[in-house]
Design a protein around this nucleic acid. Structure first.
Length: 277
DNA sequence: CAGTGGCCCTGAGCGC
DNA sequence: TGCGCTCAGGGCCACT
């Protein structure tokens, strides 16, 4: 479900409300991608700081308060995760795998596939958080990101541009849907070897990534499926997918039937006419 | 080093 | 209605 816009909207939807909240209890369900790394009881008494985002990770600072542990939780929603913030604390369902019960309500991770994670770390710049974030590329709206940077970062990389974008070690945030959409907007064939992008096309791709992610953010997260923020509020549907999940359907620009191919075991959708090598 | 494929897990959708 | 198959918005890791 969640690419950068969805993660960011999720973060925004609970960050203020929980900043300053005291942890009363933490509970784990089934194992997630990685172990929490600390006994849930140890989180009791900590005070939550303001949640931050890096790539598709959310960092929830934990301040020691009177009796708690100092550090934070690094959260990832994986493919199917979502966070909910509620006043009450209903009994957990089978797919509710992490609860943070505070004096301001319940933050609950719901994640059927369990590719998501909640990992305790003593600091954002200490292991294990720092290790997980180490290989991330620039944030899409980082002013240092421009065509020149992209060109240099892609130098010597023979993988297809779609896969380079998805890898997240150059720019973070564009997952499978938005990577397809950005390449369509930029008019670039997803199979093009990354190092072959001209400087002009690097400029266009940076602009396209920002455009797609920015519009999804403005629409309140996605747009494309069933995303809801931590209050259960759905995103608006202002951003129609141009190519994603539209195999065989006419390109909205030129009416050519769109194609689906597989790259790195992930589906790629593109327009064979609008997107060039 | 860059690139490839496997894998973690559950649920939805489809053809038969 | 049920079964078996494929696929799904992510990303780490082992291996070549």
């Amino acid at each position: 479900m969640p690419e950068l816009p969805e993660v960011e909207i999720t973060r925004q939807s609970f960050a203020q409300a929980l900043c300053g909240a005291r942890v009363l209890e933490a509970r784990l369900g089934k194992p997630l991608r990685w172990p929490l790394g600390v006994a849930p009881e140890a989180l009791q008494g900590s005070v939550l700081g303001l949640a931050q985002r890096r790539g598709k990770y959310i960092w929830l600072p934990l301040l020691a308060g009177q009796s708690g542990l100092e550090g934070g939780l690094l959260l990832h929603l994986g493919m199917s995760g979502s966070l909910g913030l509620t006043r009450e604390r209903p009994a957990p369902g089978v797919h509710d795998h992490f609860d943070l019960w505070t004096d301001r309500g319940l933050l609950r991770l719901h994640d059927p596939r369990r590719f998501g994670a909640v990992v305790w770390s003593r600091a954002l710049d200490a292991a294990p958080a720092a290790t997980l974030l180490a290989r991330l590329g620039l944030e899409p709206f980082d002013p240092r990101l421009d065509g020149r940077y992209l060109k240099q970062a892609l130098a010597g990389r023979r993988v297809a541009i779609k896969q380079a974008l998805l890898a997240g070690d150059v720019v973070v945030g564009a997952g499978n849907i938005y990577a397809c959409e950005a390449l369509f907007l930029a008019g670039i064939d997803p199979r093009l070897p990354a190092h072959k992008l001209s400087p002009a096309r690097c400029d266009r791709l940076v602009a396209a990534v920002r455009d797609v992610l920015g519009r999804a953010l403005n629409a309140g997260g996605s747009t494309l499926r069933d995303f809801r923020d931590a209050h259960g509020v759905a995103g608006s549907f202002q951003m129609l997918a141009q190519v994603y999940d539209r195999e065989g359907q006419p390109c909205r620009v030129c009416t050519t039937p769109l194609r689906r191919i597989v790259q790195g075991q992930r589906s790629t959708y593109y327009c064979p006419k609008c997107q060039k090598k």
